[in-house]
Simulated scan of single mutants.
Amino acid sequence: MLFIGSADEDANRTIRRAAAERRLSSHMDDTKWRALCLAVAEELPFPPAYQTKLVLSEQLDPEELPLSSTHVGDWARTPEASMGIFIEWLKITPRLSIREGRRLKPRIEDCSDALRQIFIRLQIPFSEEDGFFFIFGHSAGTVFSPMAEQLDHS
């Protein structure tokens, strides 16, 4: 089951007002969030862990995100997950650290290439930095997207 949290009208107004006050541009809509969540669930070997920054909060959730996570992300599979207008940005680690025994080093699975291709195919605005991907629901400036660069060279 795929669930995208939708805000009521009061929440929409509050978020839009906060975004306007901070001069944030919107880059995602519910259709793009749904397509992204569905692609992550259906096409990747694991749902990558992520850190969330919400428009109405200065707190990051979780506070820290390791380059190789030991847990997976909740890409809108439960009603508690709310991808959409609330999200300012996501920081995603495309690596999963899997323990196979106490004495063995963890095995690292990496879905970077597949995730990058999903972003490009769905025209999701993203950037890469230090091994992490960033998706911008809202931003104060221009968001780099390799998709735009590909279109410029076509």
Rank of each mutant, 00 (worst) to 15 (best):
T78W: 13
I124E: 01
L67I: 11
A76K: 07
F119V: 05
E88F: 15
P106I: 05
F132G: 06
I118E: 02
S97E: 04
S57F: 07
S97A: 14
T93E: 01
L54M: 12
L67C: 12
D130A: 09
P45E: 03
L90G: 01
F133C: 05
L38I: 10
E42H: 10
V72E: 15
L60I: 12
P94N: 02
R77F: 07
P94R: 05
T93R: 02
R121L: 08
C37K: 13
P45W: 02
L44I: 04
R77P: 05
V40Q: 06
S57M: 12
S97M: 09
R121A: 10
R77S: 08
S57R: 12
I87W: 07
E129D: 15
F86E: 14
P47A: 05
D61C: 14
V55I: 14
G84N: 11
R103L: 15
W89Q: 12
A49Y: 06
R116C: 00
F119Y: 06
V40D: 01
D113F: 01
L90Q: 01
G131H: 12
P94C: 09
M83E: 11
D110G: 01
I87R: 05
L56R: 15
E128S: 01
I108D: 04
P106N: 03
G73P: 14
D130I: 03
E109P: 12
E63A: 15
K91R: 10
S127E: 09
Q117L: 07
E100L: 03
P48E: 07
D74E: 12
I120N: 09
Q59I: 10
E100M: 09
L38E: 14
T78C: 09
V72I: 14
E80V: 12
E42I: 02
L60K: 14
A76D: 05
F132M: 09
S97P: 15
I87Y: 03
F86M: 15
R102A: 09
E63C: 13
L104Q: 07
R99L: 08
F133A: 00
G101R: 02
V72F: 14
L60V: 09
R102K: 15
E63S: 14
E128F: 05
A49P: 06
I124V: 04
D130H: 11
P106A: 06
M83F: 14
G101W: 11
D61S: 11
P125D: 06
I92H: 00
L36W: 02
R116F: 00
T70N: 15
F133T: 00
Q123C: 12
P66Y: 13
L36G: 02
D113G: 04
K91F: 00
E58F: 08
A49G: 04
S112P: 06
K91N: 08
A76Y: 03
R95D: 02
C111E: 07
Q51R: 11
I124G: 08
W75R: 09
L38N: 14
R102G: 10
R103G: 11
S127T: 06
Y50V: 03
R116D: 00
G131P: 13
I92L: 01
I92Q: 00
E109M: 13
Q51L: 05
K105S: 13
G101A: 04
P45Q: 06
P106F: 04
I124Q: 02
F134C: 08
L60D: 02
F86A: 15
